[in-house]
Structures are given as C-alpha cells and as structure tokens.
Design a protein around this nucleic acid. Structure first.
Lengths: 68, 68
DNA sequence: TCCTAACGTTAGAAATATATAACATTACGT
DNA sequence: ACGTAATGTTATATATTTCTAACGTTAGGA
C-alpha cells in the first residue's frame, strides 16, 4: 500500500505529532503508516482523510498486488 | 459505523458466503461487518468496495460520533 | 557548537480484527 | 411439514494494529 499522508502533511505544514494528536493516535503510528508498513483500520483511515478533506482512495493507494 | 454491504450484496444477488470468498474472509466476518460490529482493516474495506465498484465512503458511513 | 524539534526505529504489551468451530434460527422451495 | 441454504450468534484462538517507552539520527536555529 502507498499513501500520500506525508505529502498532505507537508501541504498543511503539519508535523507527524500534530497529525497524530488530531486523529488520536501516536506519532509512531503515523510514521509507520507513511511508510506503508501497515494497513490501518478503516476508522483511522477515515479520520486522516477527513483531516485533509480528501477521499480515502485519494490518500491510500492499493495496487491489485496489495490486495492478496 | 453503518454500512451498505447488505444492500449491495442484495443488488448483486450475492450471499454472505460468496462475498466472503471473493474478498478472502470468513462468512462470519461479513456478518459482523454488516452489523457494524467492527471496524474493518482498510485493506478489507477496499476489497469489498471494489467488488461492488463503489467508493469506500459510499459503502461505509461514519458519523462524527463514530470517530471518537 | 549546542540545543531542540522532527523523524526513524526497535522491542514488548495491550487492544481489536479476523479465524475457527459449533450450534441456533430464519426463510424458502418441494 | 420437511429439508436445506442463508444468516445469526457465541466462545475461543490467532493475527495484526496500535500503544508505550526508549534510544538513535538528522536538520536547523541561537
């Protein structure tokens, strides 16, 4: 899975810690997410997408090969 | 969280078991999901949305109160 | 250079999604 | 009414996300 979290964070001049607080998780969670190291819950994905006013699909990109 | 999985399953004449097999989970998982009893992984949500050719946001509806 | 903020990363605990197996119930066709 | 498919539901096990605490690295400002 790829994600544009880092890009949108930059656009909004936001640090990992700030984003983490906004969406109620730890900074490390954001760090791992940005690296695509895990597959967030839909709830967390929804919170982050809303934070940036974008769709989930815009923020998280799944290749077909990611869906096995 | 609310979901339209059941509706889309009906539209497509699909049983829980068939959907479960398509997206690679157990029938019970679909059953619990349809009842909004838990919060799927983004990967699973993506698979189900693609199965029905709809967006994740169309299929899974979060009220603000669901996001606490 | 020193200090600090931001980010990377690791290891283990805690929480929760999902699997598994089993049984109950509902609905529908014959 | 019977048989069967579809769904509901429970309990326990397993897998994975997320938390927590800690330490390392990098970049920038004073």
């Amino acid at each position: 899975m790829k994600t544009k979290i880092k890009e949108y964070r930059a656009k909004n001049n936001m640090t990992q810690l700030e984003l983490a607080k906004e969406v109620g998780v730890r900074r490390e969670t954001i760090s791992f997410l940005e690296k695509g190291e895990y597959n967030p819950s839909l709830k967390l994905a929804t919170k982050i997408a809303r934070q940036f006013h974008v769709s989930i699909e815009e923020l998280f990109i799944f290749e077909d090969s990611d869906l096995d």
